[in-house]
Design a protein around this nucleic acid. Structure first.
Lengths: 205, 205
DNA sequence: CCAGTTCTGGGAGTCACTATCATTTGGCAA
DNA sequence: TTGCCAAATGATAGTGACTCCCAGAACTGG
């Protein structure tokens, strides 16, 4: 493992970042004008002044444009926050606090939430993008599984842990899509709270 | 709405069923030999003695080969069984009994469970098939949402109902994939029971 | 047997994505 | 500065899923 953040980025790295950003900046206006599906990769590449080959070197699929993290990471990831919670805290409570913290962090970055909402809107509306969601979530999947397994004391790949993770992520995904299609000024935090309440209360018969 | 089951099927209908079956029967051996991804639609069509155009008239995507219902439906659908449960029964209990009933029904058809397991194995192993799962589940999604909404007394498209359905289906999906990759003689019924137990107990902090 | 609908095969075309290779460009040391 | 290596780029050709369209064949009801 190298530590890229400690090495001052050379011209090469800066250029790569610029290209990446150019592609993203070229893509979104096109999506807004003609829709995601009607926009071809060739169009995006042309608008970003790169070749089609280069596009695919930066984004493995067209759908991944939607899931690219903003290059300025919003501080610690959700997983890190989750690990930092006290170990005695029951899983869902820990998750609730971790989400609350991450959300507060995200609010400090102007426009970050609105961008996230736009992305979730694409997820909710474009089938091919929605189809890619499971693969993308597979990463946070693993992380969440490990954090939960530690708290419940069960092995990571046990049926129980996997069901738990699947259920939490499934419910969560619905909540986010609900948010994306709701009124513009709907509060995410409140939605997440209601979603977690539903999981804890409604499910226990 | 027409009632196809009451009209005696003409030659045309029978032929369509035969073509559909021919395509499926041609596809699965090829999948077994060379894998799903390495098998092209052209190969399947050729092996089934139909043109490529005809293939796509029967199956909208190659992935849908995996999700085609067996043409002899195993009696009433899960949704119907669920509706038949007493209305006072709490949602997850009703679901548990409904699944138990459907499962017992499926066991009467020899090989049905093993075929289902094979399909879930493809879901678990082939990314493009897994990607199609959300779209396919969207149908049972609606049905489950309505059945649950009725019991909880909440609107079908409320956040709470959607989160509930997302969580149940998410947990369920994990359980099925676990089953597909588990030892061959693992009992599905027991896995489902454990999954439902996990949902009811573990989630309520 | 005869119309009218429905199903089929074939061909042409689009688009996402892959593989390959020659050219260029940044990084670095002599 | 010069020269060399590694990495990034662009162009080209190809594959495979999927769509559109059209002409002909097959089933249907009368």
């Amino acid at each position: 493992m190298s530590c890229p953040s400690l090495v001052p980025p050379g011209l090469r790295e800066r250029k790569k970042l610029r290209t990446r950003r150019a592609i993203l900046d070229a893509a979104y206006p096109l999506f807004a004008e003609q829709g995601f599906e009607a926009t071809t990769v060739d169009q995006i590449a042309a608008a970003a002044d790169v070749s089609t080959s280069t596009f695919f070197r930066y984004f493995p699929t067209k759908e991944d444009l939607v899931f690219s993290e903003d290059e300025a990471p919003h501080g610690p990831s959700l997983t890190e926050v989750l690990c930092a919670r006290p170990a005695e805290e029951p899983p869902l409570t820990a998750l609730r606090h971790a989400i609350r913290d991450s959300l507060a962090q995200a609010r400090t970055q102007p426009g970050a939430l609105e961008r996230a909402r736009q992305r979730m809107l694409l997820v909710a509306e474009v089938p091919s993008v929605r189809a890619r969601l499971p693969e993308v979530m597979a990463r946070s999947d693993r992380a969440l599984a490990e954090a939960l397994a530690e708290r419940t004391g069960r092995p990571v790949d046990s049926l129980e842990t996997r069901v738990l993770v699947g259920a939490v992520l499934g419910g969560f995904r619905e909540a986010l899509q609900y948010w994306a299609t709701a009124e513009r000024d709907t509060d995410v935090g409140e939605l997440v709270d209601r979603a977690l309440d539903t999981l804890t209360r409604q499910l226990s018969d």
